[in-house]
Design a protein around this nucleic acid. Structure first.
Lengths: 255, 255
DNA sequence: TCGGAAGTTTGATGTAAGTCAAGGCGCGCA
DNA sequence: TGCGCGCCTTGACTTACATCAAACTTCCGA
């Protein structure tokens, strides 16, 4: 097991104010937790640091990725934009999460663009490092496969959400997700970014999101204070989700 | 390179009328094309044949998959159903294509169910066979990763389609996809299954699909005869796609 | 402390697509 | 040959959500 505190220095001197420990960061990531120290060293050699300031574009749609990215600090959004200037956020990447693996393996133009939502600190890991790790260690290959599978499953979840659930149900799902484990009682949470971005992530307009949060407040299911939201009763909020459709008696074929 | 015509017989005698050559089938699949013959033999040992009749359910949502499936003949749909009895088709799997890999790697309940759209002949390949191949051959692992990446990319495409394109645009995209390569002139195509299923795949109701096809016919962009559709002018149909949004001048911020 | 830009809310209105309900068409089967 | 049953189409109506426009809030920098 790689020593998390090992004093590896990232490649040659990069443009970093603080001399950050690339190996240590890598070893902390879920994907790389079980790598041997020597393998971490190799990966670190294929990695470099990237700093982005808020709003900066990392890559545009159509870019060929020769590696993938890990967020160390900050936040990155993946989105596509329509010719009409509309924008749809596909994912919000938080520290510890990675993105771009699939497009790295595919060697096809990336269908989304990536933009920093805040000042952000990334690691870029070149393809060769990953391929070496795969060749070295089939367990690593399996973990990589599991990683992509998780991504796939969450995309399928999104598709289900968009096609089968109402906008209110999507918002509730999102809130429950943010609130995390507590199955009942109240929970408090903080929206990870602006409501504008979250609305897009949920496939709705800021106006609609605002109205839905308002309605949920009126029903005393949640309390909203800026980005701070309190779920007053997890169980009741979850029910509300199931409760909505019946009000529109659609294909109830019972006779 | 594996001999496509090699006289491998599938494991012990299965419930097959025709004694089908599992090894040969496997060797033909994109995923397994570059495997050595010995590896094909191993995979074949982990595989078995499955026959489904039209309408039969292969597995329900929530099933744990201990392997994945390859369609040899026929057609399988992957879909989820809402509590209200609605159904959303995620994918239509054609001969030569596979499904279930991601959920096999994840070891989590499958979020969709699988149902045969026609009498269908499948191969089931147990996890152990794939894991052995991965351990044996890192190039195979890479191909598996590329395979999942393709799947991921096409799901992202779906998400883009659902969130950014109108229903007419989605239908046009689908038709262009089916029509294939010809960049201009006319092309003829056959819908792969009933309009009901295709509508669901495109996230719209049968009524809406019917109306859209009608409108496209009226505009003399296509001609519809049952499941048989002729795209009269590929280029013009593609344009129509771009042409639609301007008719609804939305966020054009030019002064 | 003020000013102003960005983010958010609220209200009035529009519309794409869904729903409901008949009716037509094609096709297998008697 | 004609009957009956799915599949598809057509029309009238509904609705969830988007759009447009304007006011309000927050927060930061001068």
């Amino acid at each position: 097991m790689a020593n998390l505190g090992c004093p590896l220095k990232g490649g040659a001197g990069k443009r970093t104010g603080s001399p950050i420990n690339i190996g240590g960061l890598l070893a902390n990531l879920p994907l790389f937790q079980q790598l041997r120290e020597s393998e971490i060293v190799n990966l670190a050699a294929a990695a470099r640091e990237i700093g982005l300031s808020k709003g900066q574009i990392l890559f545009q749609r159509g870019t060929l990725l020769d590696g993938f990215y890990v967020v160390v600090q900050g936040q990155v959004k993946l989105a596509f934009s329509s010719p009409q200037g509309h924008e749809k956020v596909v994912a919000i990447i938080e520290p510890g999460q990675s993105f771009g693996e699939a497009m790295m393996f595919l060697e096809k133009p990336c269908p989304v663009f990536a933009q920093a939502l805040a000042d952000t600190h990334l690691l870029y890991i070149a393809k060769r490092g990953i391929f070496a790790a795969i060749d070295h260690d089939s367990a690593f290959a399996r973990r990589m496969l599991a990683g992509l599978s998780i991504r796939l499953r969450s995309l399928i979840h999104d598709v289900e959400d968009y096609s089968l659930h109402s906008s209110t149900q999507r918002v509730i799902g999102f809130l429950l997700h943010l609130a995390g484990t507590p199955d009942s009682g109240s929970a408090t949470l903080e929206l990870p970014t602006s409501k504008h971005v979250i609305a897009s992530r949920l496939n709705l307009t800021p106006e609609t999101l605002s109205r839905i949060l308002h309605d949920l407040s009126e029903s005393e299911l949640i309390a909203v204070k800026g980005r701070h939201i309190t779920v007053l009763d997890m169980a009741r909020l979850r029910q509300f989700d199931d409760l909505l459709p019946p009000s529109h008696p659609l294909c109830d074929k019972s006779g």
